[in-house]
Design a protein around this nucleic acid. Structure first.
Lengths: 344, 344
DNA sequence: AACGCTAACGTGAGCGCTAACGGTAACGCT
DNA sequence: AGCGTTACCGTTAGCGCTCACGTTAGCGTT
């Protein structure tokens, strides 16, 4: 930039104005400067720009595991919307480990991200309050926060689980096991509540033995938990999994134990990952619009960034998507054939 | 940091030394300064640090689409290794669009990433040469580069495709169609060569009609291309897909056309995404160690960063992983039952 | 006692940019 | 003619750190 200024015979500031398309500059000089910049193969140093302007063009995204297609789709939604406005996204996986989340938030704070989307697994709120204090826009993805008011984007977890459970009940099941995730996660609680509500409405008593919690959302965990459920006597005739990833583990467990799905075990998942329809026994599941949820979260962030911590911007945004039960074979209901593949 | 210095009664520099664990400082003052920093809830500004030191702690990862589980696993491998050394990764999706790749490289250059991993879809080399000129460590992921010598991490694409094709031939197939990706991608070429080699060895003549190229690697593209292949007369009895994502589309195409797999159509994919084994007709495919490939790529980057553009470090690294044919039902061969789920 | 040496800290300059302000010429207006 | 006004550009002062020095006190050494 200094070199450009020297060659163009103008001040550094003018070069900055030209390259950043500021208004107070002659159109000819702008073009000339841009040409020189191109000839010099100049790459703007956004680090320096960030330091000087105290603004960055990066936002952070903290999720449990990008390998889970549900989060991958959300990440894609985030990245696409961020890119539209010239923002880059830094991705951090936590594996549902609380300490990893704290560390992730710390590094992103130090990188001075302009905003932050968080699928939180941490029970505390200190890190969230810190962000608020520093006026870093935050939206919780897939999570609510009971203690403090924050932006969030979720699907109606309670309703989704309610729908799924009710569906199983309608199919005649009474002994319905449920595989949940870490208990500290709000959406786990919400889906549990939905399950409980449906059971209560049907007058079915809950059994502690039919409710298991996992430390993460990986299929291997689902497999262990499903086996645990299926060793009960009497054995549950249906399983509701917190998410499709865990449901995949349940498939494996059933296979291990020689149980056929759906005849001997009905299975319902949550998320509707794109592969669920292609399984040997296509998975009945509760669909969430993952991509659009990511988009929505990012849009909120972008909006808040533009407002720039404006005092008038007091209210936080809450977007709740509608969950939709997708009935396939794994639950044992009648099904119609699915249409073509629709990309992630 | 200034505030800390004032409170501690030392210079800013001493604070910097304390916080960054530099050696030339008294252990007591260090602890005292760290305590004060904690009390003030101080967050280091890595932007300023980067500008002053001309080093950043972020690396870039450019891939076609994070929603493809294969790339998701690679991304995970990258992120995990980066995190170990305190680096963050910026993720950019290109959707196999060349312009998107150029733009991605440009933004990452301007962010001054310390290193860059690239699953390139761009035929040119200008952007790569620019990175070399600026001494930004680069490793190509899943791609080679014919023109210039660069680091790369791939699997032996030619051999993998050769194995898969040979397997189909051994099963009695002669009319083997192949669904490829964008022609400009090196791995597409390599897999095509492997296919061609196996066909030649078996004395089977190639037919242009049985070779189709897609503009991207999405299932919907695979569906269209598979239908195109299957409308041929005589119809191919087997299809080799460039990747599992495209193979998924082939499943849909077969369903649409009322063809049963593997009886009327044998299908083989590439990548071995974790869901392939759970499909209605489990997918025979060529496995790549995606996670470890990501790890390997990131390790090279980290190494190169440490060397810091050392003149002696002339040679680039080439890591080639061994592809492994995983035989399941979709090809029509005899199969054994798969074991438990192993996480992504 | 005079010397060097080292541990521990301070000083100053600067990384590459932005933002606020200041200056100047050219123009129009009364 | 004198005034304000606008368009354009330069100047200055940082942003919050790091790095290469310079400095000082305290120590051992001969």
């Amino acid at each position: 930039m200094k070199d450009i200024a020297k060659i163009a015979g103008v001040s550094i500031n003018t070069v900055s104005r030209a390259l950043n398309d500021k208004p107070e500059i002659n159109e000819k000089t702008r073009r000339r400067i841009k040409r020189i910049a191109r000839e010099l193969n100049y790459t703007p140093n956004s680090i320096a720009a960030s330091l000087a302007s105290r603004k960055t063009k990066t936002i952070g995204l903290i999720i449990p595991d990008i390998c889970d297609p549900f989060f991958a789709q959300q990440a894609r939604g985030v990245e696409d919307t961020a890119k539209e406005e010239g923002y880059s996204v830094i991705l951090l996986n936590t594996d549902e480990i609380s300490e990893a989340e704290l560390k992730a938030v710390a590094t992103l704070r130090s990188i001075r991200v302009a905003g932050l989307m968080l699928t939180s697994v941490f029970p505390g709120t200190d890190h969230i309050e810190n962000l608020n204090k520093q006026k870093v826009p935050l939206v919780l993805l897939n999570r609510r926060c009971q203690e403090i008011d924050t932006n969030y984007v979720i699907n109606d977890n309670q309703k989704g689980a309610y729908k799924a459970t009710k569906h199983l009940i309608k199919l005649g099941h009474k002994k319905i096991g449920v595989i949940l995730g870490p208990q500290r996660i709000t959406s786990v609680l919400d889906r549990y509540v939905g399950y409980k509500k449906a059971m209560a409405e049907a007058g079915i008593e809950l059994s502690e033995k039919y409710i298991v919690y996992g430390e993460n959302l990986k299929p291997s965990t689902g497999e262990i938990l499903a086996e645990q459920l299926l060793r009960n006597n009497p054995r549950p005739t249906a399983i509701l999994a917190y998410c499709d990833s865990l449901a995949i583990g349940a498939y494996a467990a059933a296979r291990n134990m020689g149980l056929s799905i759906p005849e001997e075990l009905a299975l319902v998942g949550y998320d509707d990952i794109p592969y669920a329809q292609y399984f040997e026994i296509p998975l009945t599941t509760v669909a969430q619009p993952a991509y659009n949820m990511g988009k929505a979260a990012c849009k909120i962030i972008l909006e808040k960034i533009k407002l720039g911590g404006d005092e008038k911007d007091l209210e936080s945004q809450h977007i709740v998507f509608e969950p939709e039960l997708v009935i396939r074979k794994s639950c044992g209901a009648q099904v119609q054939i699915e249409s073509s593949w629709s990309d992630y």
